[in-house]
Structures are given as C-alpha cells and as structure tokens.
C-alpha cells in the first residue's frame, strides 16, 4: 500500500490522526497533515483506508498496488 497526502487540500481536521496515529500526524503550528509512513504495514491498512474515506478534504490517496 502506498499513501499520498495532498497537503494544499488538507483542512487540518485531524480525523486521520484520530484513526491512524502511526501513519499520520499534524504540524503543531497549523494542524496540517504530516505523513509519517507512506508505505505502512499491513496491520495499518484498514485504519489508513478509513482515514482516506472520512478525510473531509479528500486529501488522502491510497493506492493498493
């Protein structure tokens, strides 16, 4: 799994950090997403997919290949 974040689209909601804190973080100053792991281990897949789904800015793209 490859994870990409579109930083200009991020609205700093922090939903991804709530769901997958090992994969996503937020910058302290403005809450914008920080991608911690762009190819997370398999046990993170479900959480990463859920993060992409509920991201209110549609800023997370998951590619499964």
């Amino acid at each position: 799994m490859q994870v990409e974040v579109d930083v200009p689209k991020c609205v700093a909601s922090g939903q991804c950090v709530l769901i997958a804190p090992d994969v996503f973080d937020q910058r302290d100053e403005d809450g914008i997403v920080v991608l911690l792991d762009d190819s997370p281990p398999v046990e993170q897949y479900a959480a990463v997919r859920e993060s992409a789904l509920v991201c209110p800015a549609a800023a997370i793209t998951v590619s499964e290949r």
Partner: peptide, 11 residues
C-alpha cells in the same frame, strides 16, 4: 486557530 493537540483533547 487552535493547535491540533488542543483540539484532540477537547474532542
């Protein structure tokens, strides 16, 4: 304009 850690705690 609150920082993310502040908001997470409140949530």
């Amino acid at each position: 304009n609150a920082g993310p850690k502040v908001l997470r705690g409140w949530r």
